[in-house]
């Protein structure tokens, strides 16, 4: 049990997927201008990463490994992610419309969020067991959501500040992300 807690903490805080491993930065900067969009994106990411993690892990074990076609991993994983996103979108639209309107436009964007494919590949690379894979997928995506929501909060304030013209928008966003990364950097000695 202790191992899983350590894994969870290291995935959420120490190896934060956004700030320490640099995955999923485009949607991070794109959807963090408003708190609402940031929370929507964060929820959609948690949902899709956990599902994609499970499916790709099973695919790797029962399809790619026995047939000895691991070189097709990239191709098959991205297809799984893309079709999963499409499928989830259709399913939510039909059965849980409330959640669909909440996640709405963020779902299709997730296909090109490299955090999803990144987590799936990390799970395979680290040779996690099924339970470890569940914990790591969930904690990585929660870490992503945490960083995104924190960042959106700061960014809403920055709009009110007087930022020099050349630094505006993405530029100041990146510098701010750097500052948050410093805070997360402090967790490094924890485990």
């Amino acid at each position: 049990m202790g191992d899983y807690i350590v894994l969870a903490i290291s995935c959420i805080l120490i190896n934060n997927i956004l700030l320490a491993q640099f995955l999923g930065n485009c949607p991070f900067l794109g959807t963090s201008k408003k708190m609402e969009t940031a929370t929507g994106m964060a929820m959609a990411v948690v949902f899709v990463i956990v599902l994609a993690g499970i499916i790709t892990w099973v695919t790797e074990l029962y399809l790619l490994k026995p047939l000895d076609i691991e070189f097709l991993r990239t191709l098959s994983f991205i297809l799984i992610v893309a079709s999963l996103v499409q499928f989830v979108e259709m399913f939510l639209k039909k059965s849980i419309p409330a959640l669909y309107t909440g996640l709405g436009i963020f779902l299709p964007l997730i296909t090109t969020n490299c955090a999803v494919l990144g987590v799936c590949l990390i799970n395979i690379k680290e040779e996690y067991s099924f339970l470890e894979m569940l914990v790591s997928s969930f904690s990585y995506s929660v870490g992503y959501g945490l960083a995104l929501v924190l960042f959106a909060g700061i960014r809403e304030r920055i709009i009110l500040a007087r930022v020099p013209k050349p630094l505006q928008d993405t530029s100041i966003g990146l510098v701010t992300a750097g500052m948050i990364a410093i805070c997360f950097f402090a967790f490094k000695g924890m485990v």
């Binding site: 050349p166 630094l167 993405t170 530029s171 966003g173 990146l174 410093i182 950097f185």
Partner: peptide
């Protein structure tokens, strides 16, 4: 990691300055 963000942000800022 933090240096990467700050560095890219500042390069972007310089590009904006030159581009103007």
């Amino acid at each position: 990691a933090p240096g990467a963000f700050v560095c890219l942000g500042l390069v972007l800022c310089i590009m904006n300055l030159v581009g103007k």
